[in-house]
């Protein structure tokens, strides 16, 4: 048994030295959470695409929402002697030990999309979006679009207490601060779902004089906006014209709504977190230069002017 172990570690060592010697064909392990949402599926597709474009050999492990599977995957990546590990952590805590093992094996770990509660020296960097900034971009768009006219805004919040709901609300409110013409008149949770988005929007419309008092809708995600758009139509109003619709995420279906003139703007939560991660990794492996501990992805604003049908076609195949 001891002999086998020694043999195994010798092979790993050999693999390690071999790997770092030829930086051109990198082997990167990617421990993905699972495929609980369309966005997650799109992230997986894009990570694979990005790896292929750069000639990186990507080892993919789907953890099916379980941390123990992710830890197992990371250990097997270490054993295989990969050059780097991408990790989209399912929870924030409990990573110290396995990250230490990766560090001891001198394999850099890059966090994707979420961060962990672990000492910063245990990972190379984290590539995530800034949720507050996303809300802020949506708010700024609305401020610019209404251009000083008085406007009553209704807000569909995400699941109460979740960090996207808290941060996207905060960012949006910050953009509206000091603009007296804009007022959030109603704010309720739509649980990030189409059904609840539609139901809550129906009640907003009833409560605000059949929707005549509402000038804009801000939804914390596109799915709620899609549900709300149906409610606005069923109330006999025109979404996108009578009531402006701005939301966050940029999933394909909202581009269809934008193409039909029923939604006005969306802020992208890009599923391409791997691109920036691979860029950083390449520089790090070449020069050994430590990157910043946080790399913020772009929160791009899409409006009806951005040829929504074209974007829809591009995004459709990503597995959203």
């Amino acid at each position: 048994m001891k002999f086998v172990k020694a043999l195994a570690s010798a092979t790993i060592l050999a693999a390690c030295t071999f790997g770092s010697a030829s930086a051109a064909d990198l082997v990167v392990g990617f421990s993905q959470i699972g495929s609980e949402s369309g966005w997650r599926a799109a992230e997986t597709t894009l990570t694979k695409q990005q790896a292929e474009q750069r000639g990186i050999d990507l080892k993919f492990a789907d953890a099916q929402q379980k941390q123990e599977n992710q830890i197992k995957a990371i250990r097997s990546f270490i054993a295989q002697g990969v050059n780097a590990i991408l990790l989209a952590p399912v929870v924030a805590t409990g990573w110290d030990e396995v990250l230490q093992e990766a560090k001891d094996a001198e394999i850099p770990v890059i966090l994707l999309d979420r961060t962990v509660d672990a000492p910063k020296e245990l990972y190379l960097t984290a590539v995530t979006s800034d949720l507050v900034h996303e809300g802020n971009v949506a708010g700024k768009w609305l401020v610019d679009t209404v251009a000083g006219k008085p406007c009553n805004v209704v807000e569909l919040q995400g699941t109460t207490g979740s960090s996207p709901a808290i941060d996207r609300k905060k960012g949006f409110e910050a953009a509206l601060a000091g603009k007296d013409n804009l007022k959030i008149v109603r704010s309720q949770t739509g649980d990030f779902t189409r059904t609840k988005g539609k139901e809550v929007m129906e009640s907003f419309l009833k409560a605000e004089d059949g929707g005549k008092n509402i000038c804009a809708l801000y939804a914390h995600n596109d799915d709620m906006a899609v549900g709300a758009i149906q409610a606005i139509k069923e109330a006999g109003l025109k979404p996108g014209k009578d009531i402006l619709v701005v939301s966050i995420d940029a999933v394909p279906d909202i581009f269809q709504a934008m193409a039909a003139g029923e939604a006005n703007a969306t802020v992208e939560l890009t599923p391409n977190m791997a691109g920036p991660a691979f860029d950083v990794l390449a520089t790090y492996l070449k020069d050994g230069k430590e990157p910043a501990k946080w790399i913020q992805t772009e929160s791009k604003l899409y409006t009806q002017a951005d040829d929504p049908m074209k974007v829809y076609e591009e995004k459709k195949g990503l597995g959203y």
Binding site: D191, T193, R194, T195, K198, V226, G227, Q230
Partner: peptide, 14 residues
């Protein structure tokens, strides 16, 4: 009814 209402089947939340 739930699927017809939102014109789509949402397996996670329906």
């Amino acid at each position: 009814i739930a699927a017809a209402d939102i014109k789509g089947a949402d397996a996670n939340n329906a």
